[in-house]
């Protein structure tokens, strides 16, 4: 089992645990990439949740696709989505129809987990009620504080905003509402003086 160990960070940065079978009337799983392994590990602990589970899975941006393993779990509802954006209306509908007692689990990259938790919170669940387990890539989802555009799967720091083209450094400051880290222009005071990018988030 690959558990991610995070450095201690500032208090806005979320922390993650290990998915454990919750008590409830229905169980909704959303995972991307290697997050599928966390879901499989949970089901390996017992079959109890199986009859009332719904899994939405998005293959990782790094190519990791564990659809087959998840499908083999044999839950009543399994949906493979090419992207989180494509899955969003399904997720919103499932949450809107749900009742209290629903357990929500998110596994995979930080961006995916944060977007699932934000959707659950929007539907009325407390943010803390969503179980999260990090697996796979440490690539970040970053909002440019200047143009407001979000760049997915950022591995470099600094990086170039995919919307406005400014060079941004990536802060640890994290917005649960936006499901994103904050990117701030690195050469605002000295235009053109941009340090070399390093791969900080593999």
């Amino acid at each position: 089992m690959i558990k991610t160990v995070f450095e201690p960070a500032i208090p806005s940065r979320p922390t993650y645990g290990v998915l454990t079978p919750g008590v409830g009337s229905a169980h909704l799983f959303v995972a991307d990439g290697e997050g599928a392994d966390a879901v499989c590990d949970l089901f390996a602990q017992g079959e109890g949740l199986k009859a009332s589970s719904h899994i939405i899975y998005i293959p990782g941006a790094n190519g990791c696709d564990r659809s087959a393993a998840l499908q083999a779990l044999g839950v009543p509802q399994f949906h493979r989505s090419p992207s989180f954006a494509a899955a969003q209306s399904r997720l919103a509908k499932v949450l809107a129809d749900a009742h209290m007692g629903l357990q929500v689990y998110a596994a995979g990259t930080e961006g995916l987990m944060a977007q699932v938790a934000a959707a659950a919170q929007h539907a009325g669940l407390p943010y803390e009620a969503v179980q999260m387990e990090h697996r796979g890539s440490l690539a970040r989802r970053v909002q440019c504080v200047h143009c407001k555009g979000v760049t997915e799967n950022v591995t470099l720091d600094p990086f170039v905003c995919s919307h406005c083209g400014l060079s941004l450094f990536v802060r640890d400051h994290f917005s649960r509402r936006l499901a994103a880290f904050q990117g701030v222009n690195i050469d605002a005071e000295d235009p053109g003086l941009v340090p070399a990018s390093v791969e900080r988030f593999k």
């Binding site: 919750g22 008590v23 409830g24 009337s25 209290m100 007692g101 629903l102 357990q103 669940l125 407390p126 803390e128 009620a129």
Partner: peptide, 10 residues
């Protein structure tokens, strides 16, 4: 509520 899966914060 806890036994039925309600989160503490609700």
């Amino acid at each position: 509520a806890k036994a039925m899966g309600w989160p503490d914060r609700a």
